[in-house]
Nucleic acid binder design. Structure first.
Lengths: 149, 149
DNA sequence: AAGTTATAGTTTCATATGAAACCATTTGCA
DNA sequence: TGCAAATGGTTTCATATGAAACTATAACTT
């Protein structure tokens, strides 16, 4: 049990270190949400993100999905393989460019989307319920600034 | 490119979805820092976190390290194996309890710590430089509230 | 003291991940 | 036109990860 604080070396206090706090918070939140649909729908977080962008933008290519999800193209490729395989996404080929795929949710994909989206929103609501209006406004503004560049 | 916004199904707008934004921000920040020492010191993020808590609290057991880093015990066990192997951490056995290890940084571990810690701090400084004092105060307060419970 | 339960830590196994190599197609340009 | 470079996407390979099983020791109950 020692736990004798050391002072000679100016050690980092993880619990006050912003990158660490962000990491813990983000993982906790994402895990909680993912746990909710992972089992129920056999859907990984990467797959869900792909579905979410395809719900908003039909006909994207895999590369465009990667851009919009901030995932790398390998992850997208694999997520798509599973989604297509499961009949949740339909993959066509772009007219003037045989390299490109043209992606969209199938009816089954939409059905799942329409169940998972509210669930995700509910989690967000619960999280934001810990803040008051003023704090929510600041948070949004601050995240924007931190993510810029 | 297509990208025809779909409205019929109330799709999630990832870029405004808090858990997603947190995840992107957190990954971007952590990756940037890790990239900085990963190569130079052959040190993974999990290993660095372990070193950071051992720098603050000498003589912790593996379980206590896990608690303080919010990592699971398997991850800690493996990080420790590598750190001990590399001569960066010294692992003893607790007097009254042979199950427990008693961990502390070696001289070599301290040397690395004393180089990496300022580097991590500098990254945090750069990140926080994007905010003014008021925003920094709100951020800290907001993170505390979000992480509570 | 014996037997059950709990705890510290490691190992195993199955899955996830990213970098780099790769294939096919398209684009740029001499 | 023909060839080098770029692009979309997949595969390979090496590493990371977590859950569950496992080993050893300690604590609790009687």
């Amino acid at each position: 049990m020692s736990a004798r604080p050391n002072v000679a070396h100016a050690p980092l206090e993880l619990e006050h270190f912003l990158p660490y706090r962000l990491s813990i918070l983000s993982n906790t939140v994402s895990q909680a949400i993912a746990a909710d649909y992972q089992q129920r729908y056999e859907l990984s977080m990467t797959e869900w993100r792909v579905m979410a962008v395809l719900a908003r933008f039909e006909g994207l290519s895999a590369r465009e999905v990667a851009e919009r999800t901030a995932m790398d193209k390998v992850a997208v490729s694999r997520a798509l393989a599973r989604l297509v395989d499961a009949g949740r996404v339909d993959r066509g080929t772009h007219d003037g460019d045989k390299r490109r795929s043209v992606l969209q949710l199938t009816a089954e994909g939409w059905a799942i989307h329409d169940e998972v989206a509210p669930l995700a929103r509910e989690h967000e609501r619960e999280l934001l319920a810990k803040l008051d209006d003023e704090e929510r406004a600041w948070l949004s503004r601050i995240l924007d600034k931190l993510m810029a560049a």
